[in-house]
Design a binder for these strands. Structure first.
Lengths: 172, 172
DNA sequence: GACTCCTGGTTCAAGTTTTAAGCAATTACT
DNA sequence: AGTAATTGCTTAAAACTTGAACCAGGAGTC
C-alpha cells in the first residue's frame, strides 16, 4: 500500500511536537540535575514510589507504570540506591522478585526537589495553557499512549521487552 | 513565594504527557533502528538537511533548528559521516565553520526509511486525532517552545549552551 | 518428579548524551 | 596593530540507555 504522508497541517504539528518535547525534556533535566542531582526519569521513579502503598513497588510494576524497560529501571534503581534514596528488598511472595522501597532520605530529597520541578513545569507548560487546552493535552496524550500500548489490535508495537501485560497476583 | 502546585487536572495531563512522550520516542526509535539503523534524532538530522538549500547546513544552524546542543550534533554527524550519509565540508565564509552536507547515499537512505517512519507516526499520533486536535497540539507545542526558548523575559532557561541566538550572516 | 516454557530481574557490551574544557578563528575595543 | 572577549566546533570523561544474553524461580504438562 502506498504511503499516506502527513498533511501540511500534521507536519507542522509534528515538528512543533518534536521540538517542544526536546526542549522540555532538556529544561527539566537541567533543572533537576542542578537542584536534585538527578535526571527527570530518576526523579519520577522517586515520585511514583512515594505514592505507592508502603512507598514500595515491585520492579516490574514500577517499570510498567513508568513506561520504561526493566533494564533501564535496574540501572536507575541501582544509582538511586547508591544515593541512599531507594532501598531494594526481597519480595516475600515470589523469590525471584525485588521490591524497590523509597527511603526516608529519598522522601526528603523528593520533597526538597518538588517545588523547583513543579515551578519549571508550570512555567514551561501550564502557565500559558487554557483549561480546555489542558484537557485536550491529556486527551491527546492518552490517545497516543493507547495507540502504542493499547490492547486489542496493536497500532504500533514498540517492543516485546516492554512489559505491559498485567501480572496476576498483587505486588507486595 | 509559596509553591503553586499543579491542580488535579494539570497533574493528570502532565502524567499523560510524560507517559506518552516516553512511549512515543521509544516506539519511533525502535522502528527507525530496525528499518534504518539509526535513532530518531539521527533521522531528523538527515530530514532537516534534505530540506535545506543545497542539502547543506552549518553545524550551529542545524543544532539550533533541531533544538539540541552543538556537542550532541557533533557526535551525531560523526556517526552519520561514518555511515556515509553525511559529509563535512569547510565553511567558505568562516574558517572556523563546518558545513554538514547530505550525501546521495544519505538521501537514498532517508527516502527508504521515510514511509515506515511516517506510518509509525501516523498510527501512533494522527490517526486518532481530529483536525482541531492537530491544531491544538501545534499551538500547545509552539507555546511550550516559546516559553522555554522565547526571547523577552525567559520563563525557563535550560542552558546557555543551547545556541538560540540568531547569528548575523548567512549560513552557506 | 522430570521436562519444558515462561517470568522477574540483572548484567554485559556497545552506543548515545552530558558537562566541562579545549583550541582556533573572529570580533570588539582601544 | 594589539589584546580581550566571543564564537564555532570538537573532545574527554562520566553518566545514561539499549538490546541481547543470562540465571534462578515459578508454572504447566505429562
Amino acid at each position: 500500500m502506498t504511503t499516506r504522508w502527513l498533511t501540511a497541517e500534521e507536519q507542522r504539528a509534528w515538528r512543533a511536537y518534536v521540538a517542544a518535547s526536546l526542549l522540555l525534556e532538556d529544561a527539566i533535566d537541567r533543572q533537576l540535575q542542578r537542584e536534585a542531582g538527578m535526571p527527570h526519569l530518576y526523579y519520577t521513579v522517586l515520585a511514583f514510589l512515594s505514592e505507592a502503598p508502603g512507598r514500595r513497588l515491585r520492579m516490574t510494576d514500577l517499570a510498567e507504570a513508568l513506561k520504561i524497560t526493566r533494564s533501564r529501571l535496574t540501572y536507575a534503581v541501582t544509582r538511586l540506591e547508591k544515593d541512599g534514596a531507594v532501598r531494594r528488598e526481597e519480595c516475600a511472595s515470589d523469590r525471584r522478585g525485588t521490591v524497590a522501597v523509597l527511603t526516608d532520605e529519598g522522601t526528603a530529597l523528593l520533597e526538597r526537589a518538588a517545588p523547583g520541578h513543579v515551578d519549571t513545569v508550570r512555567r514551561a507548560v501550564f502557565d500559558h495553557l487554557t483549561a480546555e487546552q489542558v484537557e485536550q493535552l491529556e486527551r491527546i496524550c492518552l490517545g497516543v499512549a493507547e495507540a502504542i500500548q493499547g490492547d486489542g489490535p496493536p497500532a504500533v508495537r514498540p517492543s516485546d521487552e516492554l512489559p505491559w501485560r498485567r501480572r496476576s497476583g498483587p505486588s507486595g
